Measured scan of single mutants.
Amino acid sequence: EVPFKVVAQFPYKSDYEDDLNFEKDQEIIVTSVEDAEWYFGEYQDSNGDVIEGIFPKSFVAVQG
């Protein structure tokens, strides 16, 4: 069931425009499960802007 919160276990950096880049310990709200390997989610950056994109499930852990 979406949405749910995950926390980055590792930093994720990608050159693909659709990917969500983040640092370790970033909290991310997952709004869609793309497939067995990928989530789609969002978070607010330090400027208060909402950043969204896809990212690999293996880089995050589900909270709770």
Results as ranks from 00 to 15, higher is better:
E1T: 13
E1M: 11
V2A: 07
V2L: 12
V2W: 06
V2Q: 05
P3K: 06
P3A: 04
P3H: 06
F4G: 02
F4H: 02
F4Y: 04
F4P: 02
K5R: 12
K5E: 05
K5T: 12
K5F: 09
K5G: 05
K5S: 08
V6T: 04
V6R: 00
V6D: 02
V7N: 04
V7A: 03
V7P: 01
A8D: 01
A8N: 01
A8H: 01
Q9G: 04
Q9F: 08
F10T: 06
F10L: 11
F10Y: 12
F10D: 05
P11S: 11
Y12E: 02
Y12K: 02
Y12P: 00
Y12W: 06
Y12V: 03
Y12D: 03
Y12A: 07
K13Y: 14
S14F: 01
S14P: 03
S14C: 07
D15P: 13
D15Q: 12
D15H: 10
Y16D: 13
Y16W: 11
Y16H: 14
Y16A: 14
E17H: 11
E17K: 13
D18G: 15
D18N: 14
D18M: 14
D19Q: 15
D19Y: 14
D19R: 15
D19A: 15
D19H: 15
L20E: 02
L20F: 09
L20R: 01
N21T: 10
N21F: 09
N21H: 11
N21A: 08
N21L: 05
F22S: 00
F22A: 00
E23N: 08
E23G: 07
K24L: 07
D25K: 05
D25S: 07
D25F: 10
D25H: 10
D25E: 07
D25M: 07
Q26C: 05
Q26G: 02
Q26R: 03
Q26D: 02
Q26L: 02
E27S: 06
I28N: 00
I28W: 03
I28Y: 03
I29V: 10
I29Y: 07
V30W: 01
V30L: 03
T31M: 06
T31I: 08
T31E: 01
T31H: 06
S32Y: 09
S32N: 11
S32T: 05
S32G: 12
S32E: 07
S32H: 13
V33Y: 09
V33E: 06
V33L: 07
V33Q: 06
E34T: 13
E34W: 15
E34A: 14
D35G: 12
D35A: 08
A36K: 09
A36G: 13
E37N: 12
E37F: 14
E37G: 10
E37W: 12
W38A: 03
W38C: 10
Y39W: 14
Y39V: 02
Y39P: 00
Y39H: 01
F40L: 07
G41C: 04
E42M: 14
E42L: 10
Y43A: 02
Y43N: 00
Y43R: 02
Y43K: 00
Q44E: 13
Q44Y: 11
D45M: 10
D45A: 11
S46V: 13
S46W: 09
S46G: 10
N47Y: 08
N47E: 07
N47K: 09
N47V: 06
N47S: 08
G48C: 06
G48V: 00
G48P: 01
G48W: 02
D49A: 13
D49K: 14
D49R: 14
D49I: 14
V50K: 13
V50F: 09
I51A: 08
I51L: 14
E52P: 02
E52G: 09
E52Y: 13
G53N: 02
G53K: 00
G53H: 02
I54E: 04
I54L: 15
I54Y: 15
F55P: 03
F55Q: 00
P56N: 05
P56E: 05
K57L: 06
K57D: 04
K57Y: 04
K57T: 05
S58Q: 09
S58D: 11
S58W: 10
F59D: 05
V60M: 00
V60Q: 02
V60R: 00
A61S: 14
A61W: 09
A61T: 14
A61M: 12
V62R: 10
V62K: 11
V62E: 10
V62Y: 12
V62N: 10
Q63V: 15
Q63K: 11
Q63E: 13
Q63T: 13
Q63W: 10
Q63P: 12
G64M: 11
G64F: 09
G64I: 12
G64C: 13
G64N: 12
